[in-house]
Design a protein around this nucleic acid. Structure first.
Lengths: 204, 204
DNA sequence: CGTATGCTCAAACGATCGTTTGATTCTGCC
DNA sequence: GGCAGAATCAAACGATCGTTTGAGCATACG
């Protein structure tokens, strides 16, 4: 038995940090296992290969994030009183909360990297484990923005996604004023992103 | 003498394509020189190192792009009749035109990669060769959006930059309808981005 | 107790990386 | 033509990569 957490979990945590810092290729298994305090061979023993490890790093966070987002979406989807901002909040707030709990912000940088890399296998993995979420949100956006045709809507969602991914990948850097609590800071940031996204989506 | 173009230029062109496709680390000098049809040692002979080559790939395109952007900005900056959309056009249109001339779209993907990577030396190089352009545009944005304080303006510009970088990195993928000329398609795309950015920047 | 199973470990494997070397070829100028 | 400097070439360098190996250790079960 290991010090408080399992070897697999220690590897995943160290991998997330190192991937965010140096990229998937840039982070070597020797740096990674050294940081995690495990043997070099442990990665191939527990995950099979480095590529599988990358997928598991995504899966661990994305499963929780997607579940949270869909739960929030379900609260407002289809209801007459729902505003565009409510749907955006269901998309943005879970990501913000993730990035403020232990080392979660590193995952957003990993995600931003994955978006920039046009690697086919990674993109396919992302669309398999991420696509159904985007589909549900897109359907709700379409309902709330009936004046936009399909092509126009896709365009705007893509632009909003780019802005949010870019912004969230830098959250670790954003300075929080000392007189503002973390709770308040997160609320202000969420309000910022939601208003920006709403303006970009719904402008005439 | 080489076939029509110099060795340096052939390396730069091949490097741009391979960096966009496989990333800076993922593209090896052996793949690169093989694609360029030059000897492996040519990169270190002409550029000194792989890292210097990366910088030159950026410099070749960014010098032209920045010059073009600043020239367009100079036409409208400070004038009373200038609208926000005019400034955004000065920023967006040169990038769009670059991405539609020979292999220029590949550079936009390289740029998107560089944004995602938080590599310090690369970011420093970018801010040295790119920062003064952003400063001039920011000043003009500030003039046209006097109701926003400094922090708010920076926030919105950052979000817009994220959206545009994300969008432009995918331009090679965007399907153009057969009944639309490339000139028209570029105009439509520019109008899209400009309206989106204007809405995101100027919303109340 | 003995043994089977899951895990960890140091060491080595072959492959590939960026870079360097020294010889060879090409180019322009007297 | 001959020579100097630039450019290209095949080959090798040491380093580092992901992965595999086989022995060693721990734990749990009969």
């Amino acid at each position: 038995m290991n010090s408080s957490t399992s070897t697999k979990e220690r590897i995943l945590t160290a991998a997330e940090a190192l991937f965010a810092q140096r990229g998937f290729d840039g982070a070597s298994l020797r740096q990674l296992t050294s940081a995690a305090g495990v043997n070099l061979a442990a990665v191939n023993y527990h995950f099979g290969s480095k590529e599988k490890l990358v997928e598991q790093v995504f899966k661990r966070r994305l499963d929780a994030l997607n579940q949270h987002r869909l739960a929030e979406l379900a609260k407002v989807a289809g209801k007459p009183a729902t505003r565009l901002e409510d749907v955006l909040a269901a998309y943005i707030r879970p990501a913000l909360e993730l990035s403020h709990e232990g080392n979660g912000s590193l995952f957003m940088r990993v995600l931003a990297r994955a978006f920039a890399e046009h690697d086919d296998t990674l993109r396919q993995f992302l669309s398999e484990n991420y696509g159904h979420v985007m589909k549900q949100f897109t359907a709700e956006f379409a309902r709330l923005l009936p004046h936009l045709d399909r092509a126009e809507l896709y365009w705007r969602i893509d632009l909003v996604t780019g802005a949010l991914t870019h912004a969230m990948s830098g959250f670790g850097m954003i300075q929080r004023k000392d007189d503002v609590s973390e709770q308040q800071h997160r609320e202000q940031t969420a309000a910022h992103l939601i208003r920006f996204a709403a303006a970009g989506l719904s402008h005439p």
